[in-house]
Design a protein around this nucleic acid. Structure first.
Length: 272
DNA sequence: AGATTCGCCTGAGAGC
DNA sequence: TGCTCTCAGGCGAATC
């Protein structure tokens, strides 16, 4: 399940293959994604040169030479591969973007929770990008920010940091890992977490995401990088998916609970 | 406004 | 072998 580190890994993986390339052909086999792929997409893209790649939250962006941007969201099961044009077709290969050197970006997404959208130059900030919280590596994201925003909130701190309007990138896996590193119990009300502990949490979120990016993301079942390679951060996980296994810090068994319909893992001894 | 629930999807794995 | 059931979950929209 691609979260921020996985999307960043994909961005880094495809960038050298697409930079400066011109789009020659676009094939949309299935337009029913999270939002419909617009019918004129191919016409909008063909002939454009790709000038850069960016990421905002979990949205990957191809910046075109007319300043339009192609937004790609991998949803839960989306993959973006760099292949040679004409590569054998697999089930759920929904969109191809063929480049002028014979390479091809291929979007595959079994569950179709992903999206491929055009954000045209001159249009206001795309609605899906508006209202997003700060990037975890930006200057505006720190303990003070989390502390101020959380006052009066009774929702669990895990739910709070997973809210993309608070900060982007703390998906289920990384929220759990960050809370473990910060020693904070995930069920604690966001408004009851002290300022010093939010300092630790903000730092933990940055550390966990940075480490995951370094290791190419976390591969549990669905995720693979642009070259098809898995990530390796799952070997570093302290709590996620480790129900009943000994805590890496104290040896007591990791507990699994459900918070906001999502599996949550924590160490009842180390996290308070 | 904040919190909660719903709905969209398919594949993997368990159980029979 | 093959069917049915459950679960996974990002995130916008709707509802409480």
């Amino acid at each position: 399940m691609p979260e921020l580190p996985e999307v960043e890994t994909v961005r880094r993986g495809i960038e050298p293959h697409v930079l400066g390339r011109r789009i020659e052909r676009v094939v949309v086999r299935e337009s029913r994604l999270r939002w419909p792929v617009e019918s004129g997409l191919a016409q909008q893209l063909i002939g454009r040169r790709i000038e850069g790649t960016q990421r905002r939250g979990k949205y990957l962006q191809l910046v075109l030479d007319n300043a339009d941007r192609l937004l790609v969201h991998l949803g839960m099961s989306g993959r973006l591969f760099v292949l040679r044009a004409g590569h054998a077709l697999l089930k759920h290969d929904h969109v191809d973007i063929e480049l002028d050197d014979g390479a091809m970006l291929r979007f595959n997404d079994p569950r179709r929770f992903g999206a491929v959208l055009l954000w045209r130059a001159g249009e206001p900030l795309h609605p899906l990008l508006a209202g997003m919280g700060p990037e975890p590596f930006s200057d505006t994201f720190d303990g003070e920010y989390l502390y101020a925003l959380s006052r009066g909130r009774r929702a669990p701190v895990k739910t709070f940091i997973m809210d993309g309007g608070v900060v982007v990138g703390a998906g289920n896996i990384y929220a759990a890992e960050s809370l473990f590193r910060a020693g904070i119990k995930p069920t604690r009300a966001a408004g009851d977490v002290s300022r010093p502990r939010y300092d630790r949490l903000a730092q933990a979120i940055r550390e966990v995401l940075a480490a995951a990016i370094e290791q190419g993301g976390t591969t549990l079942r669905d995720y693979a990088g642009a070259d098809g390679a898995p990530g390796y951060f799952q070997q570093t996980l302290d709590v996620y998916g480790r129900e009943g296994l000994p805590c890496h810090a104290c040896g007591k068994p990791i507990r699994r609970i459900v918070i906001g319909q999502r599996s949550s893992f924590y160490c009842p001894h180390c996290q308070r």
